[in-house]
Design a protein around this nucleic acid. Sequence first.
DNA 1: CATAGAGTTAGACAATCGTCTAATTAAATG
DNA 2: CATTTAATTAGACGATTGTCTAACTCTATG
Lengths: 99, 99
Amino acid sequence: MVVSGNQAFKALADPTRREILRLLRQGEMKAGDLAAHFDMTKPSMSHHFAVLREADLIVSRRDGQQIWYALNTTVAQDLIAWLMDVLGDAKQRRGGKNK
Amino acid sequence: MVVSGNQAFKALADPTRREILRLLRQGEMKAGDLAAHFDMTKPSMSHHFAVLREADLIVSRRDGQQIWYALNTTVAQDLIAWLMDVLGDAKQRRGGKNK
DNA sequence: CATAGAGTTAGACAATCGTCTAATTAAATG
DNA sequence: CATTTAATTAGACGATTGTCTAACTCTATG
């Protein structure tokens, strides 16, 4: 885990934040457009963006009045590597050992 | 996500629980032997086992006085599928789209 | 430069979480 | 059956989390 393993896992623990990541699969989006997908105030959404950014799961850039968010795949790759390592092929390994 | 997506993600948010999963990679272990790896009371460890079991990330069986825990790979596979879907190949996808 | 719009920051508050000690359950054994 | 050992359950408590309203920053524009 390169940088923020624990923060990244904690960030993923909230369903709103996972949905934000899902929306960003298709490319970057403005903060306001993201927020429009949720039944929640803008400050609450802003908080979720901050948590995701501090976990390095997203990156942001300002363009005039608006802020664009996009997935940061670097930490994402680390998370997947951790999960695959710990949980991914355990079945095969156990099969080989305990059969 | 088959059953307990949110619970599974929340279970992964704690470093002690992730370490428990890591230890279980090599096969099932007794509750006491797992607990011995941590600087924490047994009731606290028992709580973490319960969270992991409710998230379907581990399974347990009693053998006399002792309880054995093992990884449950079913939900683990779902988690990995989710992560790969949302975060896994975003770089390639964005590259193809926004280049 | 006054106003409006997009977004964040500050601070409060209830709910959830992680840990502890004390009590309890369940199995083994003299 | 009394005691010991392995583990969980119950309940308390401080820390963290997710949400809200109010206030603020920053940019655009008349």
